[in-house]
Design a protein around this nucleic acid. Structure first.
Lengths: 232, 232
DNA sequence: ACGTCTTTGTGAACGCGTGCACAACCGTTC
DNA sequence: GAACGGTTGTGCACGCGTTCACAAAGACGT
């Protein structure tokens, strides 16, 4: 039994909420709060208190009955579980609008995901500076991935180039891919792919708008649509 | 009974997949395919065929047994259901890296979401040109929203300004909000809010990476992690 | 030391979404 | 017009996630 043993599997839905809790808890810590109950955390996160407790229970029994959770310790545990106890270098493929924005975003480096390199296939873009980083040609990808132990790749290319980008990332040794192109990308088993399509989000919104106006035009009714979302 | 009556409610999970189907079907249409079976569509979308049929059945019975679905008609029906039979003007709040990228993205206008305006509170940014659009001061927001019937607002501000941005959008009359700031924003009942937090996506990925290396270090095992995701 | 108060951790019920399996149905061929 | 191969639409069962409700347990005051 290793001291750092693999815990029981954490449900996907819980994993998706842990970063939210972490963000709130970190802010509370900065604000000087040292203890927090599941009820308070639930309110801040906009979810049910029982859900918070069950989510946190997957990490272990880190709360104190009658008191709540010690913020600092909880932050430490969540960070460890999410693999945030060290940095994860990432590479960005595509130096267009989105790639440049991501590169200049700052939120990535700040949260432990320093950008090891941004790449583009277009020779005109190569060697230009984007957010203080030099755009590199695609054939340097494998070398950078190996040298800087990159395991996460971000696809910020046009749709048609997305699959090729994914293939190159996999060949270079990347095992997790965040895809911002509005296309399904296929990857071999064992590679984790997450797709974030902004126009899909927009279309989900306009569906609700659509229903809103349809309902309003057929009969003047008040709808109490409590629909929210939570990342994916 | 109006001819354009409100259909039975479509499950959230289905709504989130309709844009994917639409994208695939549109591409197939351009490629000259006029008919498609649920099996084929399922393969292209990377989901189960029964799921596709059930999803499409919420729109009505638009398939033909023994044949499949007529692509063009299905595209029309999905577009209508998603409210894509007309354009939805959107406003963007925040002309920083992300706001500029979204503005220059092109994918929005192209898919029926023209940008009615991009706004910033910083006087230095106001009147600069971003993606061919002039950045406007925040106090012109209400006027633009009213004049151009904007119902969707995008928050691309720093985290601390997100709630204020949301409040302003709601006051201006926007009823759907797409929030890219890594913060929970509160809105009154009846307003639809979706949050897309890129660093959350990153943290979900690094959780899987974390487990991968933990599993590999404890015992040299092959993991068949079939985890995928689907927007939302 | 004991009782009270508060909050956790979790068993159990519920509801939604997924996937199987099949009857109903269409088109085509003989 | 009847038989047949193919595909849809859906009833049903299963599994995951959410929520309720409560026993277990720590802290604190007397």
């Amino acid at each position: 039994m290793s001291p750092h043993r693999t815990r029981r599997r954490i449900p996907d839905a819980t994993v998706a909420r842990l970063p939210i809790y972490l963000q709130i808890l970190s802010a509370q810590l900065d604000g000087g709060t040292s203890n927090l109950s599941s009820e308070e955390l639930a309110t801040l996160a906009g979810v049910n208190a029982a859900k918070v407790r069950k989510d946190l229970s997957y990490l272990g029994s880190y709360g104190t009955r009658g008191v709540g959770y010690e913020v600092q310790y909880l932050v430490y545990q969540i960070r460890r579980e999410l693999g945030l106890d060290h940095e994860w270098n990432v590479v960005i493929l595509g130096a267009g609008n989105l790639g440049q924005a991501l590169s200049g975003y700052g939120g990535f480096t700040e949260r432990g995901y320093p950008i090891a390199g941004i790449f583009d296939i277009d020779p005109d873009k190569v060697d230009t500076l984007v957010g203080g980083v030099r755009v590199r040609p695609l054939d340097e990808l494998a070398q950078v991935v190996a040298a800087r132990s990159v395991s996460i790749g971000v696809i910020a290319t046009p749709p048609v180039a997305a699959q090729d980008a994914a293939d190159r990332l996999v060949r270079a040794g990347v095992t997790s891919i965040l895809n911002f192109a509005p296309t399904l990308v296929n990857a071999p088993l064992g590679i984790t792919v997450r797709t974030v399509d902004m126009s899909v989000e927009m279309q989900i919104l306009s569906y609700h708008e659509q229903r809103r106006v349809a309902a309003a035009s057929s009969l003047r009714s008040v709808q109490a649509d409590g629909s929210r979302n939570q990342t994916a």
